[in-house]
Design a protein around this nucleic acid. Structure first.
Lengths: 354, 354
DNA sequence: CTGAAAGCGCTTACAG
DNA sequence: CTGAAAGCGCTTACAG
């Protein structure tokens, strides 16, 4: 052995087994049946095992033109919604024996394009862009990377859309059916279509129901608890306080919970709250949050599976729209119930003349 | 162009610029100074730009023996603690122009070893194992992958340890200093040393203080809210109810909060709670959780930085121990305060004969 | 100042 | 049934 720390090559195996390097390759890729005697095959396998031989990935990639690696790009792993996506993607990649290259774009579009260009050159066979806008075709110098886009506008690449509109409508209609009219909205101040849709649903349902509310009932926040608290306080301090809040994200709902508690408002008796996302947060909150559940883990899984199928069959996946679930939990209640609860807690109903 | 979708090679650039392929390489790797005329250099660069040329990663890897890729292995991305690690790792990799290969081991040790073996052969230059036990040396067939281990026992590989003991001691002493004696403990039922240490600190502080508690005051749970609720209920139903709970993880604290609320116990007045981790959860809970903060994002960053330095200088990082912070928030209070609060809320103190 | 050639470790026709 | 050879796309001595 020349370099003790060096990895064994198929040449080392060949020498050790007393055969040619091409025979080693034949045996180890399973193409030896009827071409190499079983005795030799066994010898080769044994030698490979002894040396701990693994085919060198870069050499294979260069030769075969495929890296058996896919990249997942998403805007923010720290968001539990996206870490669930990653979990699903990891599972799918593992099942198909692909490696998963992970990139958190941190919402940096310039970097995104550079990264795609770089990785497409031999590092990775394809990309999943999850919640990340794909680059313009013009920036790609005429070459077409394999990309599956999830939940972002995609004029040219195969798309897995999420029926956020459906979910948001259901959430709003739920609130309506509970008798709520003064429904406030905490929007996410992001130009992303995913979020815009939720706000659009808010307006649409209100319009259809003939409910007219001042624009005070709607606020945009950054995606963090502190900003949500500021905006929630403004909304809940309105002279005609809303009886319900539709939050475009679960982290915003956290802000609402905190301010509500602070103001002595009980959820769901004094205030109904609906969230959007389907993360752990909905379970952590007390009462647990009624929310629109996006099946993020299975979407991550699906996206990677579609991409791999795309790569291996070379047929472009059809665009599709994935449904979401509206999940009823403890944070919403009928406006009826609310009236009773409005009495100050120290005053017993029996104390009042009936 | 033969294959329209194929990536341009340095050969294509050479033809387009009217020079040899080696000149292209020289220019584009920046080794051309004083060897290639600036005029030719400019021609080459222009041609490369026009064609959208990027050097093929696999070819470079094969030739240079380095992939400029590192792998991060961790046990569970869905845990917000680990997704913060990933965020930090992503940043560090990006800064050093490395790609990050992500593997969620899902606590599968067999797979772990296979994965390391496979990836070490040309896919990746090194590994960060974060909260994941490294494989035995014997299973490595004498070759030594570059591995940096964080927060797991590592006899042979460079280690970044976390001072969990220090943090746990501080947390327990805090409770003691608040006058708590009947301190319960919700442990994580995992054999991992990280968690064992927290339980050891619990016993040590109690012993030093001469406090003897029945084993009923200590329960192990799976790392999920539901199991934590079951165990929390048992603990809080003890005839001599604990006045404080030290939770070995923040998700367990969520269970305690839920059961406390259910039993009409107010945190921190009736019950003090301390968590461990430093995730978003501590902020989501109401009141916010007093907790031991592990700087997971910077640890992820540090681990990747150390690994890359290891790879590039070839000097093995020294083992180190990283500190944690104990963070005081709203979930702990002095036992003094508790006595007043113990009176049933409907009975005013002024109603009693003094 | 520029080009021809070797070689990284594979896979796969091709020859025997 | 087995081996010698070409070639994937690079980088880097080496020759001129």
């Amino acid at each position: 052995m020349k370099r003790s720390s060096a990895l064994p090559t198929s040449n080392d195996v060949a020498k050790s087994a007393g055969v040619s390097q091409s025979t080693v390759s034949l045996v180890l890729t399973g193409k030896a049946e009827g071409r190499v005697s079983t005795a030799v095959q066994e010898k080769v396998r044994e030698a490979a095992r002894m040396l701990g031989y693994r085919p060198h990935a870069a050499a294979q990639t260069l030769r075969l033109g495929r890296a058996k690696q896919v990249a997942l790009l998403l805007p923010d792993v720290v968001n539990p919604y996206f870490s669930a996506v990653l979990r699903g993607a990891n599972t799918a990649a593992r099942q198909h024996d692909y490696a998963l290259l992970f990139v958190d774009t941190e919402n940096d579009q310039n970097w995104l394009e550079k990264v795609i260009g770089t990785l497409a050159a031999g590092s990775v066979d394809g990309f999943v862009l999850f919640g990340v806008e794909p680059p313009e075709k013009s920036e790609l110098h005429g070459f077409e990377p394999r990309i599956v886009v999830v939940d972002a506008p995609s004029p040219i690449f195969p798309l897995i859309a999420i029926d956020g509109m459906g979910g948001a409508l259901e959430a709003m209609n739920h609130l309506l059916s509970l008798g709520h009219h003064r429904i406030a909205h905490l929007a996410v101040s992001s130009p992303k279509e995913t979020f815009r849709v939720r706000t659009r649903a808010y307006h649409q349902v209100l319009n259809n129901a003939g409910i007219i509310l001042g624009s005070d009932y709607e606020k945009s926040c950054l995606m963090d608890i502190d900003d949500a608290k500021v905006k929630a306080r403004e909304i809940l301090s309105l002279p005609e306080r809303p009886t319900a809040v539709f939050c475009a994200d679960e982290r915003l709902a956290v802000g609402v919970y905190k301010v509500a508690k602070d103001m002595g408002l009980h959820i769901p008796i004094d205030l109904s709250v609906v969230g959007f996302g389907g993360t752990q947060i909905a379970h952590i909150l007390e009462p647990e949050l009624t929310t629109v559940n996006i099946p993020s883990e299975s979407l991550g899984n699906l996206a990677v599976r579609s991409l791999i199928e795309y790569l291996e069959t070379n047929v472009k996946p059809e665009p599709r729209i994935e449904p979401v679930d509206f999940i009823l939990r403890g944070s919403t209640a009928s406006i009826q119930d609310r009236k009773y609860a409005n009495c100050p807690p120290t005053v017993k109903t029996t104390d009042q003349p009936s």
